[in-house]
């Protein structure tokens, strides 16, 4: 399940970009910053430009820590995809090793995603009792447990 989703995630920027042509990005979302509005509303842009603008938008508006998280998640997706591809090609002979290796990556990915969600300022309302510091501590706690189980399981 997860790898599909990860791959999908990898590929979606382009899909979003292509579908963007017909529908100019709406301006009503609070998350879309003011700065980028003129760019996207100017209409009739080539897909590359749209992609570029989104990328630029992302670079501009995302906090550095979130960027860090995104880099790490991308890394995890790559590691997970590699493992999955290897498993499909070469078989999963020590099944426990495959499981622990792969699920370590997947688990780490979802934990990191959780951290991203929790630290995202947009979701502040959802997590009244979870401050970013608390979120990070929880994240470390969860990851350590995850790593322990994985290492134990791979034997």
């Amino acid at each position: 399940m997860a790898p599909k989703r990860s791959n999908a995630r990898e590929s979606t920027p382009s899909t979003t970009a292509t579908s963007q042509i017909s529908t100019p990005a709406a301006t009503s979302t609070p998350s879309v910053p003011v700065k980028s509005t003129p760019k996207s509303s100017s209409g009739n842009l080539s897909p590359q430009e749209v992609a570029l603008s989104i990328w630029q938008n992302y670079l501009d508006t995302t906090p550095q820590r979130t960027k860090l998280i995104d880099v790490f998640m991308t890394f995890l997706v790559v590691v997970g995809a590699l493992q999955f591809v290897y498993c499909v090609i070469a078989g999963n002979y020590p099944f426990n090793a495959f499981l622990s290796g792969f699920s370590a990556t997947v688990g780490q990915f979802v934990l990191t995603a959780s951290l991203r969600i929790q630290t995202n300022t947009e979701n502040k309302a959802e997590f009244t009792s979870v401050s970013p510091e608390r979120a990070f501590a929880d994240y470390v706690f969860g990851s350590l447990i995850l790593h322990f189980f994985c290492v134990n399981f791979i034997n």
Binding site: L99, S100, S103, V106, G107, V110, L111, A113, S114, I117, Q118, N123, E126, F127, G142, I145, L146, F149, C150, N152, F153
Partner: peptide, 21 residues
């Protein structure tokens, strides 16, 4: 909600690994 995502995925990822021990 994001809370749902966080709690469920955490539970599943760690819980499944724990159960496999």
């Amino acid at each position: 909600s994001p809370r749902l995502y966080v709690s469920y995925t955490t539970w599943y990822a760690i819980g499944t690994l724990a159960s496999m021990q």
